[in-house]
Deep mutational scan, measured.
Amino acid sequence: MALNTPQITPTKKITVRAIGEELPRGDYQRCPQCDMLFSLPEINSHQSAYCPRCQAKIRDGRDWSLTRLAAMAFTMLLLMPFAWGEPLLHIWLLGIRIDANVMQGIWQMTKQGDAITGSMVFFCVIGAPLILVTSIAYLWFGNRLGMNLRPVLLMLERLKEWVMLDIYLVGIGVASIKVQDYAHIQAGVGLFSFVALVILTTVTLSHLNVEELWERFYPQRPATRRDEKLRVCLGCHFTGYPDQRGRCPRCHIPLRLRRRHSLQKCWAALLASIVLLLPANLLPISIIYLNGGRQEDTILSGIMSLASSNIAVAGIVFIASILVPFTKVIVMFTLLLSIHFKCQQGLRTRILLLRMVTWIGRWSMLDLFVISLTMSLINRDQILAFTMGPAAFYFGAAVILTILAVEWLDSRLLWDAHESGNARFDD
């Protein structure tokens, strides 16, 4: 018995066209964080690309023209004298008006014999932002004059995390709450300039795509075929072959399989920071003279006294001054041990922890910024005066060393310790 099946006739004509040209192939790229070699397709503007294995951002879609970056830099340069030299806060102490600005706080630190601690604050609040705007201006002028731009481009990517104007702005709020127990506070004209400078700096850093600047100024022929001998440069993120001198053909720094002496430098910085954190938390970090009496505060006791007036601000200072430094030390110690013992479990967790400490590390400088600003506000000789204690130097040095330890660690070593050939990683 035959089955009668109805015929289905399409209502619209289906047209099949042959592909007349070869589909576009992607360029081969190595991930600078996990060293995976993959094919990167062509990316349009405002599109980002991520590593298929570790999800690290390979290409950032946010990109401004150099002219727009230069305009932002010149605007920031105009704001800087007002943000640093004009009063941020006014207080009335014992019937006398006192003005506080950024430069005055750094000068008070240096004047009291601790120039190293003052230079830490100076670099993060004044030096690094000033280098940022002058570097962008150098790129703008240098591109037109045919100057060598490689050193500036190499420095810009590392400079971003040292620009800490946003953290200093939080420190202004913390210092205001600490001082309000002794005097009446009012915002100064410099505060508005400083807030504007923070906003412009944040926007500029978020749109400063150094890798795209490398592509514009020093374009290189990408690798179009897969080759395990391809290496990625950690300076400019170019994937290719080393030249005859073993250097990256684009930025001219040595092109090595792994960062040289990464573990040794990381261990040295980490152990030194552990040693410095002990006096930083045991010795007094601030000293207040009130009517001839002397009151010393460690980091913890200062947080407890701050909690009596504002528990939320005390929580912020606790996280930045105690929780973050010790968390960074514990995480980095764990990561280094996992590399030495070739741990194969929990790779995803370790990668996330490394990215976390990379982002939060700079916030530990908050305590030094609060001390710097408070020193310029309260300084009335023996009637009422505020000065920093010996722990300030140890704390600042420990924070900087932990930042350097994270920067010096080559994250690809975590993958080397893991089993080879993993296309995915999980716990």
Rank of each mutant, 00 (worst) to 15 (best):
E419S: 10
H184S: 11
A280D: 02
I96V: 09
S301Y: 07
I371S: 00
D99W: 12
M72N: 08
L257A: 06
S39P: 06
Q33N: 14
R62H: 05
V125N: 01
K12F: 09
S206I: 09
L153M: 12
A417E: 10
F326R: 00
I96T: 06
Q345T: 12
L300R: 02
G118W: 01
S206W: 15
L208K: 06
L401K: 08
L191Q: 06
G146S: 03
E157G: 08
Y138H: 06
A312L: 10
T387H: 04
P222G: 11
G85A: 08
G292A: 05
I287N: 06
Q295G: 07
I253R: 02
T9C: 12
N379I: 02
D27M: 14
R97S: 11
Y289V: 02
Y241K: 10
P52W: 11
R350S: 10
H340M: 10
L145E: 01
T9G: 12
H252I: 03
F38E: 04
G361E: 05
H46D: 14
M155Y: 08
L132H: 03
F333Y: 08
W363D: 15
L414V: 13
L93Y: 05
M80P: 05
D297T: 06
R348E: 11
F333L: 11
D367W: 00
L270Q: 07
E42L: 09
V370E: 00
R245G: 06
L40R: 14
H237R: 05
I316L: 08
P325Y: 01
F192R: 08
F74T: 11
T387K: 05
M36I: 13
W359M: 13
A314K: 05
A314Y: 13
A391T: 04
M332G: 13
R258F: 05
F425H: 14
F425G: 12
R245C: 09
Q180F: 10
T117V: 07
D297E: 03
L89I: 15
K178D: 03
C343F: 14
T402E: 03
I339G: 12
H252Y: 06
P222C: 11
L401Y: 05
L94Y: 03
K12W: 09
H184E: 15
P87Y: 08
M304Y: 08
R62M: 12
L409I: 12
N148I: 01
K328I: 00
W64N: 07
I116K: 08
M76L: 15
L77E: 08
R348Q: 11
M76Q: 05
A385P: 00
R424D: 15
M72D: 05
I8Q: 15
M164C: 04
Y168Q: 09
D297V: 04
S48M: 15
G293S: 07
T5L: 11
L89M: 12
L153H: 03
R221S: 08
T224K: 14
L77M: 09
N148D: 04
W84I: 08
L257R: 03
V406C: 12
P81S: 07
D410A: 00
A115W: 02
L283K: 06
M80F: 10
R256W: 04
I177A: 09
M109A: 13
T204W: 02
K265H: 05
I136V: 09
M103K: 07
R62F: 10
V195Q: 05
L153N: 04
L306D: 00
V210G: 11
L132V: 06
K13V: 12
S262P: 04
L37D: 10
V370Q: 00
P81N: 11
R30N: 10
W267S: 06
R259S: 07
F122R: 03
L290P: 01
C251T: 00
R256D: 06
Q264E: 01
I274H: 11
S338E: 07
R59A: 12
I311K: 09
G293C: 06
T402I: 06
L3R: 12
L200C: 12
